[in-house]
Simulated scan of single mutants.
Amino acid sequence: MTIYQNDLVIITIEPSEIPWIKVFTKRKIKEFSECTVAEKCEIFRIIDITEKLMLSYFNADKINIASFGNLLPQVHWHIMA
């Protein structure tokens, strides 16, 4: 389910027992190195905001941030509390 998008990224909620957000580039690209500077900055801006919100809202002990490309060949990041 998409919860936010702009010209550069799309943010979705992953159905899970744990709080889990995914941040995608809007452009369908495979590698982080293919991102524009603006896309890279926006991804890390969103990750920073999301991590802080998850720590506060869920009172999480730890936030895990990862980028996997084994199933979905599109640049995206997982943020899990």
Rank of each mutant, 00 (worst) to 15 (best):
F24K: 08
K28A: 09
F32H: 04
T36Q: 05
H78G: 08
A66W: 12
R27V: 12
E39K: 15
F32Y: 08
N70R: 05
E34P: 13
K22Y: 15
F24C: 10
T12M: 08
S67G: 07
R45H: 04
Q5Y: 11
V23P: 01
E34N: 10
I11K: 06
D61C: 15
E51L: 04
C35R: 01
A81G: 01
R27W: 15
Y4D: 02
I46V: 15
C35Y: 05
M1E: 01
Y57D: 07
I13Y: 09
I18M: 02
T25G: 08
E34I: 14
F24T: 05
C41A: 10
T50L: 07
F68N: 00
I43S: 01
I13C: 01
I10A: 09
H78S: 13
L55G: 05
V9M: 00
E34R: 06
P73W: 11
S67I: 01
N64F: 13
L71M: 09
F58M: 04
L72C: 12
E34K: 13
K26L: 13
P19C: 01
T12Y: 04
E34A: 07
S67W: 00
M1W: 03
H78W: 15
L55S: 10
I18H: 03
H76T: 11
K40G: 08
S33L: 14
F44M: 09
F24L: 11
K30R: 08
I10W: 12
S67N: 00
N59L: 15
V9P: 04
K52N: 07
T50H: 10
L72M: 12
S33T: 12
T36D: 10
S67P: 08
I43R: 03
E42Q: 14
I43E: 01
I65A: 02
